[in-house]
Design a protein around this nucleic acid. Structure first.
Lengths: 159, 159
DNA sequence: ATGATTGCAAAATTTTTGCAGAACG
DNA sequence: CGTTCTGCAAAAATTTTGCAATCAT
């Protein structure tokens, strides 16, 4: 079941506390109304190993039967507000469209294959520490809230 | 003059070795033909303190009288090939259009104000060293060629 | 009830492409 | 001169917006 991990991390009080329930919880905590468009976007992203763009999210609705089809314009508006609310993160993949992933995931960055587009996540405390010290040397900024960090290269299969 | 820096770094053999001449040199070294579209894109970017998108590059031609006006489709093609050739870098500013800067500049990253869009460059050896060690822990990659790194926050003026 | 959200249609923006003529080396 | 590059026009892809109907709280 999809909620195995959640079951181990904390008590599940509600029989509905499956993947869908987790997304509802996230929305409520952030002060968003729980709507089918938001649930559809969040569930689709939660099932994806890699960040998706609006086109990809939109197409995947058809494969998740229980989700009502959502208009593409609505997907854009949904993503914009969820990003502003910190529920989604925009990921730079050097493509012409914008890609997104869940912010609820553990903080991480990506290594991207420029040939096959496969993506590997990574997290690195040393990098984060060094980044934390960067703003101290800045003339114009006294703090930063977020950062984008992606590595690009050829994966072992492609090289 | 714009070529003061160049003059100090190495001998200037040619009276034409001004900004324009430097760009011609870059193109020749990389094996590109020297065309007015490429010179226009490179000169426009070299005069900008911040990365520009195609729309901005296109508009700036009108302000640089000596540059022949270049078709927008050509600007796209020019940028694509110059990026592939390593003359330009694509910069993620979390906008819907792609931004570019000269690759010839010293290696650096950006701190971006999410309110006024002002940008400060930074370079940080510790970050670079830590990044260099990341790929060693990767399962799928044995080397990476490039990385994107941008910090986002509110500048002192906006906060 | 009522303010927020969505669907639909239309527009705006950004990017890509085919082809004939011009320019580079 | 042969190939590469550019202009132009058209299309494709991505993103935004207005408004009326619907939904969430």
């Amino acid at each position: 079941m999809l909620n195995l991990l959640a079951s181990h991390l904390h008590l599940v009080y509600d029989a509905d506390m499956n993947e869908n329930g987790k997304m509802k919880e996230i929305l409520r905590v952030k002060g968003f109304r729980v709507t089918s468009a938001r649930l559809a976007v969040l569930e689709t992203l939660s099932k994806s190993r890699v960040p998706l763009d609006v086109g990809a999210i939109y197409k995947k609705f058809s494969k998740i039967k229980k989700l009502k089809k959502i208009n593409e314009a609505t997907v854009y508006r949904t993503i914009t507000s969820l990003e502003e609310g910190g529920v989604l993160k925009r990921v730079d993949l050097r493509k012409t469209s914008s890609y997104f992933e869940l912010a609820a995931a553990r903080h991480h960055h990506h290594i991207v294959c420029i040939n096959c587009n496969d993506i590997e996540d990574f997290e690195n405390p040393e990098v984060e520490k060094a980044l934390g010290r960067v703003v101290g040397r800045s003339a114009k900024f006294k703090s930063v809230h977020e950062h984008s960090l992606e590595l690009f290269g050829l994966c072992k299969v492609c090289s």
